[in-house]
């Protein structure tokens, strides 16, 4: 048997910001990484491979959002064998990915330890629920913010875990109600009038251990039936500016 094929050295590292939108928010992280690898091959991006008998494309992911959660701010890094034109790669990669997995921005990496700079995320919750659920939201937020600790339970690979959500939540607020507060769901003509109310929540959650996910926050509000009524979107992730109380652009250092 011949020695494994020698792989060419890495000459450039690029960082990609991408979105998971619409129905493709149901893409799991594993699903996404397979789709990305295929898109990279199809668009002939000169990706570098690890050496060894089963070479893997050198792609690393940072802070992937959970399955079912949409995102406007996902990040990954790729190592390349040839230097590329970033604008061209953006177009080719975006075309090779399914619609809904969309490339937003690409920068050349000039710093290291990128994943560690993603300190917090800004989350957007679009809730459409019967009034008896939606009406509990303002009170639940006040109760949550007033507490020092709010414990929730979640099944993980290692069994049921119990952890505090409150300390990771840097901010949480309900946005002003939309223009038309009363909407009906698609079944209303056949199933009778089931009036639904809309509510928008925004939160900033610090990354870390234990990792607090947006559905953990919904669970911590302790409103029965709320979680399945929310479409969750990550709006941003990056370094957290304590003074401004906001998530900032993680590509900032690379752009300098």
């Amino acid at each position: 048997m011949k020695a494994p094929h020698a792989q060419r050295p890495v000459v450039q590292r690029i960082r990609v910001k991408y979105a998971k939108r619409g129905r493709l928010r149901f893409t799991s992280h594993r699903d996404f990484s397979r789709a990305l690898e295929r898109a990279v091959r199809r668009s002939r991006i000169p990706i570098a491979y690890s050496s060894g008998f089963t070479p893997h494309p050198r792609i690393s992911y940072a802070g992937a959002s959970p399955t079912g959660v949409a995102s406007e701010a996902e990040y990954l890094e790729m190592a390349l064998q040839d230097r590329v034109d970033l604008a061209e790669v953006l177009i080719k990669l975006d075309e090779a990915l399914p619609i809904g997995l969309d490339v937003i921005e690409i920068v050349e990496a000039t710093t290291s330890e990128f994943a560690a700079t993603l300190e917090a995320s800004e989350w957007h919750f679009s809730i459409s629920a019967p009034a008896e659920i939606a009406d509990q939201i303002p009170g639940a937020i006040a109760t949550f913010l007033a507490a020092d600790e709010v414990m929730v339970e979640r099944m993980s690979k290692n069994g049921l875990r119990r952890f505090d959500v409150r300390s990771a939540v840097l901010s949480l607020a309900e946005q002003a109600p939309p223009e038309v507060p009363e909407v009906t769901d698609g079944n209303s003509t056949t199933m009778g009038e089931r009036a639904l109310r809309s509510a928008i929540l925004e939160a900033v959650i610090r990354h870390g251990s234990p990792s607090v996910r947006p559905d953990d926050l919904l669970a911590a509000l302790r409103i029965e039936g709320l979680a399945s009524r929310a479409i969750v979107t990550r709006l941003a992730q990056g370094p957290f500016d304590e003074r401004a109380g906001a998530v900032t652009d993680p590509f900032g250092p690379d752009r300098k």
Partner: peptide
């Protein structure tokens, strides 16, 4: 779809 296993299989596209 948030309540079922592997929801991506029902999404198409």
């Amino acid at each position: 779809l948030l309540q079922v296993s592997k929801p991506i299989q029902y999404v198409g596209g």
